[in-house]
Amino acid sequence: MSMSAVRRLPRALLRRLWRGLALVALGFVALSLLLVLGLREVPAHASMVMVERKVEAWLAGESLPLRHQWRPWEQLSDHAKLAVIAAEDQRFPEHRGFDLVEMRRAWEASRDGARLRGASTISQQTAKNLFLWTGRSWVRKGLEAWFTLLIETFWPKQRVLEVYLNIVEWDSGVFGLEAAAQHYFGVPADRLSAAQASRLAAILPNPRGWDAARPSFRVERRSAWIRQQMRNLGGVDYLARLAD
């Protein structure tokens, strides 16, 4: 092999590498688009967090039965829809997946020495729970942002909240509002009262550590604050803004 051929070899390998990476990237984009577009109409009967919990239990040599039943928008309590918005993301109807106001507040608080607080929207949490794994890393945050942009582009707001309420974790092995309502209160998801809904929303920051049926003082205080926020938002009439 001539010296010129030897010099050309790394360039050829580099071109192949870039070509391979481009194909992988295009494949990922195409697959993620297909997933998001498909789940615009099809019920999400599983999520990556559910898979992760099953794998964690299997690695620990334990069994973890999953309780999960999909319920369409009309069969989800309006109180629960409003309670989750009041607790997690009060600008949900206005933003396009990222609450820049909360992000700025969180950043300013951290600069002043306060503990960095979360500013994730319902859209971001839906993307994370449905498509990704738990934990913190720049890779996961980047993928979360990508899937958030996709669902905000292709799903109406009602669909985002519908999917979130159907897949979010509410206790060990308990996923979705129907399973949570039955688990904690023995009622279907469309029969939850405002008080019950506010307790469920109150435990979302720590669903495997807090109990909605036997709330601690902290949970009860948070649920009372959520009910006040629900009133401040104008009650369930606020949900009409999701259809705009």
Rank of each mutant, 00 (worst) to 15 (best):
I122T: 12
F131Q: 01
R115K: 13
A119C: 11
E88G: 07
A114D: 15
R117V: 07
A109F: 08
P93W: 04
R104M: 09
K128W: 03
E108C: 05
Q124G: 04
E94R: 11
R96G: 15
A106S: 15
D99I: 01
V101K: 12
A127E: 06
P93S: 07
N129E: 02
L130Q: 14
R115M: 12
S123M: 10
Q90V: 10
W133P: 00
D89A: 02
R91C: 02
H95W: 05
A114L: 14
F98I: 08
R91P: 00
R117K: 11
L100G: 00
G113K: 07
F98N: 00
G97D: 08
R104V: 06
K128A: 03
T121S: 06
Q90F: 05
R117F: 06
R117H: 08
A106P: 08
A119Y: 09
A114M: 13
R105E: 14
H95M: 01
F131K: 05
S110R: 13
A109H: 09
R91I: 02
L116T: 14
E94T: 06
K128C: 01
R104S: 10
A114T: 04
G118Y: 13
F92Y: 09
M103L: 13
F131P: 00
Q124C: 03
R96K: 14
G97K: 07
R105Q: 14
A109P: 06
A106D: 08
E102W: 00
W107Q: 08
N129S: 10
F131V: 04
Q90W: 05
L132T: 06
E94D: 15
R111F: 00
G113A: 11
A106Q: 11
G97F: 07
L132P: 08
M103E: 13
A109W: 06
T121V: 02
R111V: 03
N129Y: 03
E108D: 13
L116M: 11
R105V: 09
E108K: 12
T121W: 02
F131D: 04
R117W: 00
E102P: 00
G118P: 12
I122P: 09
T126K: 09
A106R: 12
S123Q: 09
S123R: 10
S110P: 02
N129K: 05
Q90Y: 05
T121N: 05
A109R: 15
A106F: 11
D89E: 00
E108G: 04
T121Y: 00
S123K: 10
E102N: 04
A119T: 10
T126N: 09
E88K: 09
A106V: 11
Q125V: 12
A109T: 05
A106K: 10
K128P: 02
I122S: 05
L100N: 00
R105I: 09
G97N: 06
T126Y: 10
I122V: 14
L132Y: 07
R117D: 01
G118W: 10
